[in-house]
């Protein structure tokens, strides 16, 4: 049991956590813009003039189907390249998988 955890290390983990929370906000904003942008531009035409992609109305295909796939890809990129592995415990110095980069 170590009680004198270095202040710096604690703060470093919080700093990373704060950055990752902002990434969540940015992802949601991208999600909303993509979803809204395709749905209410292509979708606001009269239905008789709709074009179709793979059988779906184009607005729906781009907004909901491709939009979903884009979010999945972005989340994978964020997880693989941006998020940092860290220990969530305080007791031991390293914890499991707590390597820093």
């Amino acid at each position: 049991m170590m009680n004198n955890i270095p202040e710096r290390r604690t703060e470093r983990r919080f700093k990373i956590a704060h950055r990752e929370a902002w990434i969540g906000v940015i992802l949601a904003l991208v999600n909303i813009l993509w979803w809204y942008g395709f749905a209410y531009t292509m979708g606001s035409k009269v239905p008789e003039e709709y074009t179709y992609v793979f059988g779906f109305p184009a607005w729906f295909f781009w907004s909901c189907i491709v939009g979903f796939i884009v979010m999945v890809i972005l989340v994978f990129i964020v997880v693989k390249f941006v998020l940092v592995d860290m220990s969530l415990e305080d007791e031991d110095d390293m914890g499991n998988g707590g390597h820093s980069s």
Partner: peptide, 20 residues
């Protein structure tokens, strides 16, 4: 489809800080 956000948003926002 607004619910896609629930898949990543909650865990990223509460995130590691909440866990720690």
């Amino acid at each position: 489809m607004t619910q896609v956000a629930t898949g990543y948003f909650v865990l990223l926002i509460l995130g590691k800080k909440f866990a720690i």
